[in-house]
Design a protein around this nucleic acid. Structure first.
Lengths: 117, 117
DNA sequence: TTAACATATTATGATATTATAATATATTGT
DNA sequence: ACAATATATTATAATATCATAATATGTTAA
């Protein structure tokens, strides 16, 4: 692996992390792992604008994290590879190790098992 | 866990991911897991400006990912909790699952074992 | 075809991140 | 105290991300 390849791998890994650098996108991924939802569902559950949901979904789709399925007027989205949850769970676990406040650990633990909202 | 706590946990998780959303910061963390390095070392290995290295280290330090140790003129940095590597490794693994190109998989595999530069 | 609904796109301003250059601070040796 | 070296901070311009509003597209039912 030469310098260029090396850099490009780091770029692609960090780009992946940047997809997870927005709380709403993490929530969306959590939602769409267990089951599929349409845009309106997501909008209501996350309490953000329809436009923002579409923008997030577009970005996630461009980066192959979610797939869509149109059914009439509705477009249903789901996570392409559920293994993405492992990355998020590992981050939650890391957080649990890093913090000492017992109540914060409780919250994270709760999230860890139920982070699909 | 109420709505506010819920949102704040997602915010803190996504904030953690945003620390990893820059290739140089991922490289720096990789470097500083196995051993400590001073700013000049990092600058040379990553081939970026001294100022940028200090800025990255400041951000990582603010977020408790690295610690510093001054020895004379030099300031040595190291990763506070090596478990952070698990998060990065899980992302690399996810990438390996997601892609089909055998050569790309090779590169990632190589990185996976040797990503400490 | 038109109305109604669901979703996507675009435009825009606000804010954040990035990279570079310049300057400041800290430490050591002379 | 001064020069040399290492690191940190600040200023700033370029770029990216974010959030909102407005508009466009696609689909169905009447």
């Amino acid at each position: 692996m030469n310098r260029e390849e090396f850099n490009s791998v780091f770029k692609s890994i960090s780009n992946f992390f940047s997809l997870l650098s927005n709380p709403d996108r993490v929530k969306i991924l959590g939602l769409l792992i267990k089951q599929e939802f349409d845009v309106h569902d997501i909008q209501e559950k996350l309490n953000i604008s329809q436009s923002r949901v579409s923008q997030h979904l577009k970005l996630l789709k461009l980066n192959n994290l979610v797939e869509e399925r149109r059914e009439g007027k509705h477009v249903y989205y789901h996570v392409k590879d559920p293994n993405v949850s492992k990355v998020i769970e590992s981050a939650i676990q890391f957080h649990m190790l890093a913090i000492t406040d017992p109540q914060a650990i409780n919250s994270l633990n709760e999230l860890f098992t139920l982070w699909h909202i």
